[in-house]
Design a protein around this nucleic acid. Structure first.
Length: 462
DNA sequence: TGAAATGTTGGGGCG
DNA sequence: ACGCCCCAACATTTC
């Protein structure tokens, strides 16, 4: 018997890992060679936060497998083929990738392996139910969340996979590279990251379950630690959603309001993956093309350029927006409520196309997930599934006053406003000395730009 | 998972 | 006591 290759991608865990079990079962006593390919096509656009997270997660995974992980750089269709050849594997095992790049890449790898008589075996996906599985009675994909979630629940999904076999043997029979050093940009930007890896993910999940009773209300409050923060762990597959759903169902939280709401958030993740599966183009193109002809400002020159830069750097003069954009750059994570508000501001107040914001988010978010991120942006832009109507324009001040009522979130990320007490931090223009510590004036007038957005909307709608 | 404009209602001050 | 006005509070409509 030859060893098998377990080619890891977004499944950096040992527990609840069907592809790992499939690789182990086939290999028997010959062992499993775990491989990670540093693919330049993916590392390029990732930005320092996700690059650093990936590198740390690879080190954590390798440590948990006795240092067995083989890391190599290059095109996957070359590297995977070489490694399979060097170790004499009959099969390469993977967790199926549902994204457009991953699917195309895996087909290329499959074709390359075929030349050597080696098979690519896909077992499981990063979702409780594989994207593309839940369809309407007539076979068409769902375009609205609520009916999808009902059908998703009715479809059901398997429980967590068995733990890795006790006699599992890892082999490291080929040369690999060191996991690279973290990008300099990370320290230069002063970015801080939470603990990485499967053990950290499970600790976070454990701690979060104690707070599920308050989730229904606290999750809307960016000033509180009310959300699970599990998105990044799910992104890298350090924990599988099946594990979370099973724990939830087995605990008293499964039936509480907070537990139900959290489950719904997991189903949103499944839904957006499903949408992207059926419409891979929607990662870049308008899901609904009705608004594709709307007039937007040019981000390359004039006001458009200045506005884009001010938004990116968190100096729009709107405290709630600026706090969110600065949180993005210091933590690589932003509270979802604030993501919606800053997205609305870019599209509706600054009249810039959603793709600019989606791309910037994908560069800096540690949990940046193509399906969730880009469909979230399309939701705000009014062009996605279940989309908010375009005329739903967030007021950045009243949103701040409503969801950060004491101004604590704003003061945490915007030091120039720390001298303003309570909710005064949301409106420095209304308070004497509001600008004494260098906070910038508003770059646009929200009321006027809202009118402008509605006028541009009316122009394409007619 | 909106906000603002507009419409409606009802309490209270006041002549 | 009554009509009138003001305005807050709430509901509806519109974007």
């Amino acid at each position: 018997m030859a060893p098998t290759v377990l080619w890891l991608r977004r499944d950096l865990r040992l527990r609840d890992h069907p592809a790992l079990l499939a690789a182990a079962e086939e290999a028997g006593g010959s062992g499993v060679l775990p491989l990670f390919v540093l693919d330049p096509a993916l590392l390029g656009p990732a930005g320092p936060t996700r690059t650093a997270w990936l590198f740390r997660s690879l080190r954590a995974w390798s440590a948990s497998a006795g240092g067995a992980l083989v890391v190599r750089s290059g095109r996957p269709e070359d590297v995977v083929r070489e490694v399979a050849r060097e170790v004499g594997a009959q099969h390469v095992h993977v967790t199926a990738d549902a994204g457009p790049y991953g699917r195309a890449r895996d087909e290329r790898v499959e074709a390359a392996l075929e030349g050597d008589g080696v098979g690519l075996v896909r077992t499981g996906t990063p979702y409780a139910i594989g994207p593309g599985t839940v369809v309407k009675a007539d076979g068409a994909p769902f375009q609205v969340f609520t009916p999808f979630s009902r059908a998703w629940a009715a479809h059901g999904h398997p429980g967590p996979a068995a733990p890795p076999p006790a006699d599992l043997r890892w082999v490291r029979r080929v040369e690999g590279e060191e996991v690279p050093d973290e990008p300099e940009e990370l320290t230069r930007a002063g970015l801080t990251l939470p603990e990485v890896g499967e053990e950290a993910a499970l600790r976070r999940w454990e701690a979060f379950q104690d707070r599920l009773d308050d989730y229904d209300t606290d999750r809307e409050r960016p000033d509180r630690d009310g959300t699970s923060q599990l998105s990044v762990h799910l992104k890298y597959g350090e924990v599988h959603p099946r594990t979370l759903l099973a724990d939830l169902a087995a605990s008293r939280h499964g039936s509480t309001k907070g537990g139900q709401t959290f489950r719904t958030e997991l189903i949103w993740r499944e839904f957006y993956a499903d949408v992207l599966w059926h419409r891979p183009d929607s990662a870049r193109e308008y899901y609904r093309p009705q608004l594709a002809g709307m007039r937007f400002d040019d981000p390359a020159r004039g006001d458009g350029k200045a506005h884009l830069e001010a938004w990116q750097e968190g100096r729009t003069g709107y405290p709630f927006v600026d706090a969110g954009m600065r949180q993005l750059r210091t933590e690589g994570w932003v509270h979802n409520r604030v993501r919606m508000v800053v997205a609305s501001f870019l599209v509706k107040d600054l009249h810039l196309e959603w793709q600019l914001g989606a791309r910037y988010f994908m560069r800096w978010l540690r949990d940046g997930d193509l399906a969730s991120n880009n469909h979230g942006w399309q939701w705000t832009a009014g062009t996605g599934t279940d989309a908010a109507p375009f005329f739903r324009v967030f007021n950045p001040v009243s949103q701040g006053e409503k969801f950060d009522p004491d101004g604590e979130y704003v003061r945490r990320y915007v030091p120039e406003l720390r001298h303003l007490p309570g909710k005064a931090a949301h409106s420095p223009w209304d308070h004497a000395g509001g600008y004494d510590h260098g906070y910038p004036e508003r770059i646009v007038d929200h009321r006027a730009e809202r009118e402008e957005a509605l006028a541009r909307y009316a122009a394409v709608r007619g």
